[in-house]
Design a protein around this nucleic acid. Structure first.
Lengths: 228, 228
DNA sequence: TTGAAACTACGGTCGTGGCCGAAGCATCCC
DNA sequence: GGGATGCTTCGGCCACGACCGTAGTTTCAA
């Protein structure tokens, strides 16, 4: 059963704390240079380089050269989903000895999760959309309703571009700070992109955290009734 | 970031070929004794016992004592989903040196994938249901249509029991032999259960493979137009 | 009570792999 | 060209963990 070996290889790649640091940083959705990842990994440049080579060899991350920089990113959405799946299991495992690390407020407030929003922002948006009947979420999937399609259209999110099919599904993604699902998948990605385009949010320099701009404060309040 | 460590712990548990053998065996959906898992693992009883203890400690598997036997099973559906996610990544990684192991025909023909069908049977059923408009599948999710709900009802699958909500979603699960999605989630599980109840399929003794009974041949042909 | 089966705990061996220091390419800037 | 920056390769050290042999505990049957 040689498939099993391949599965173990993939899992073993994720099974190292240093590499998880790297992958977690890349789950911010941006491509990062090796130097930036050295910081995220918390080990020497040589060691980081070795880890990056392993991850790239296993096709978990991809690399593009640009001048003397090398930008690394999560290879495919499927890899991102796999990581989300592992996180979901890691989160709902009982306390053990997790001293509830007080990760900074910005991070738990708003951050990116590969290509969509997470944290209080992500969960808040999802709640509002569900309450207003724009989306329907269940454990295994979700769907954008007719009113939702209209709303997204008016908001400037082009769902048709993301989906050639008639029905628009969306994937719930378990939030590891809020421990509740938030909107993921292509719909979540499109929504996030639109918010960036509107200038409502800005990425922090060395973190997955997001800062909400003045325009964002106003926009989120007016459009979604959210104040963060 | 102590969450990262927990993620690495989980992944590291899956990152050992022997433990993958064990988990893969348990992905058949049945609870198995330690002895049976010794066979699946391919190592000594002592070593297997150690692995089982680690997996149980990490909450990936659960154990119930019954007489002098200990039955192990996948702990939660979420763990099963995580494993499916890892498999999906392992599968779509390019060839490398995978000598296309000719796993026995029975296995690729019909097998269980945690709680639903996979292999030619799983993919075939899914195709038929989709073609007839009983389900709609997309990359990120799926849904049972009205005609589908009627069909399942007539077939004896009680979808209402599985879902209190109005809409019935279903999860596509990437098949690692067929490399195409098959019907997973609660709908897939309910469908599989009904087929077992009808006596259409029987589990093999020491494998995830399924054998199709005479009644199953007839039933699958009449109801779904499938001949395997 | 004796024996067998199922399973686990302990102790020791050994290989894999993470880590860093030193050194080597590649690219950019002055 | 010279030097700095970005990143990788090489070599050696060390620890973690997978493995098995031996031995122990629990459960069942006779």
């Amino acid at each position: 059963m040689t498939e099993d070996v391949r599965i173990a290889e993939i899992a073993a790649l994720v099974g190292d704390p240093t590499r998880v640091n790297i992958l977690a940083a890349l789950m911010g959705g941006r491509a990062l240079t090796a130097s930036e990842l050295v910081y995220a990994a918390g080990v020497s440049p040589q060691t980081t380089s070795g880890h990056l080579a392993k991850l790239a060899d296993g096709r978990l991350i991809a690399c593009v050269k640009q001048g003397r920089h090398r930008y690394y990113r999560i290879a495919t959405p499927r890899v991102a989903e796999m990581l989300e799946g592992i996180m979901a299991v890691a989160v709902d495992a009982p306390a053990r000895h997790r001293p509830r690390s007080k990760l900074d407020d910005a991070m738990s407030n708003a951050r990116t999760c590969y290509d969509h929003f997470a944290g209080k922002l992500g969960v808040g948006l999802t709640d509002v959309l569900a309450t207003r009947g724009h989306i329907v979420l269940a454990d295994e999937g979700g769907e954008v309703t007719e009113s939702g399609a209209a709303f997204f259209g008016k908001f400037g999110v082009d769902l048709a571009a993301a989906h050639s099919r008639r029905r628009i599904f969306c994937r719930p993604c378990l939030d590891w700070t809020e421990r509740r699902p938030h909107l993921g998948g292509s719909v979540g990605a499109a929504l996030a992109q639109r918010c960036f385009d509107l200038g409502w949010l800005e990425r922090a320099r060395d973190s997955r955290a997001l800062s909400i701009t003045k325009a964002g404060q106003r926009g989120l309040s007016e459009t979604f009734g959210l104040s963060l």
